[in-house]
Computed example of a mutant assay.
Amino acid sequence: MNRHVVLAAAAVTLATGVAFAETAPTEVQFEEGAVAQSLTGQPGNAEEGAKVATTRSLGNCVACHQVSSLSADFQGNIGPALDGAADRWSEEQLRGIVVDAKHTFEGTVMPGMYKTGPFIRPGDEYTGKAAPADLPPILSAQQVEDVVAFLLTLKE
């Protein structure tokens, strides 16, 4: 009986087109720096976003930003403190800032976290020649949504 329910649910999902497609980095639509649509169609996970914010091999947001609620060993002061971010910016604005802050803050040094180019390309293993393939985004679309969910918890 359960197998029939699962098969029926899968058929309804496919028939109604409920399956969500991830927005590619080159397809992200900005409007005045904000990104209105979720990149995944799925809600972000604030706990996973906090992990991304504090993990060196991921977003490592705390290398440049201070977040009082996080217990990271070192927190930077290059970027603005993120305490109260949810009071200063909307979800759409935060998504745009995380995807590529240069659409909001001209001249910022914050890297585009969900961007594949154009970049000033690093040399490939000290040859001085640009790497042969496109650089992948720093974060996945779901990681962006997770970071946005985390930032939305940061209220004064």
Rank of each mutant, 00 (worst) to 15 (best):
M1P: 10
M1K: 06
A11S: 05
A11F: 12
T13S: 08
A21K: 14
A21S: 09
E22T: 15
E22P: 15
T23G: 12
A24E: 14
A24Y: 13
Q29S: 06
F30N: 02
A34C: 02
L39S: 14
L39Y: 11
G41A: 02
G41C: 00
A46K: 09
A46H: 03
E48D: 11
E48Y: 13
E48H: 12
G49V: 11
K51I: 13
A53T: 00
T54I: 06
R56T: 15
L58E: 15
L58D: 13
C61M: 03
S69F: 05
L70F: 05
G79R: 05
L82Y: 04
E91M: 05
E91F: 03
Q93L: 12
I97E: 05
D100Y: 05
K102P: 07
T104Y: 11
E106W: 13
G107E: 06
V109R: 11
V109T: 13
K115Y: 14
G117Y: 14
P118A: 10
R121N: 10
T127C: 07
T127V: 02
T127E: 01
K129T: 12
A131L: 13
P132A: 09
P132E: 12
P136K: 07
P137W: 04
L139Y: 08
V148C: 04
T153Q: 03
E156H: 02
